[in-house]
Amino acid sequence: MKKITLVLLVVCTATMAVAHSQTSPAKAPSWEAQDAADGAFVARTTFAETDGEKMYRRVCAACHMPDGKGAEGAGRYPALANNPRLATGAYSVMVILKGLNGMPPIGSMMSDQQVADVVNYTRAHMGNKYTDLVTAAEVKEIRETN
């Protein structure tokens, strides 16, 4: 809570300072360059994240959380960290493309390469140590089968 107030205060103070110095051009917020570099907030209907780490951090983390440990309320988001189900790359591809339970088929907003990248990233990070790689061609094949 304190953190929220503090951040907002900083945002506020920074922007007020800009408003008062009319001669200098408006200073972009610090996150703006980061968003652009990550490919976040580029389009509304497709993801523009350019690698697997960015896709995980900017998109998947919404539910599976930044540390990959999932979360629990009335229901839960499964942890992707240390998850033996990730042993088969095709399984992850399938879940992303087709959805699972309440999870939307979020891969419909990703290219084949983006799906492959985020699967490969997740299978090799957060305690997962699977080194075999999924390819965009494999993703395409799974995407085209029902």
Binding site: K3, I4, V7, L8, V11, T15, P29, W31, E32, D35, A40, F41, A43, R44, T45, T46, F47, R57, R58, V59, C60, A61, A62, C63, P66, I106, M109
Partner: peptide, 27 residues
């Protein structure tokens, strides 16, 4: 009020970061 790709990207941020962006865009 947004869904789609933007909805996930905003949700992935901490609440105060969502607010900071929405403030910037709206300005």
């Amino acid at each position: 009020y947004v869904g789609g790709a933007t909805g996930y990207e905003l949700t992935a941020l901490a609440p105060e970061q969502r607010i900071a962006r929405v403030l910037e865009w709206g300005s």
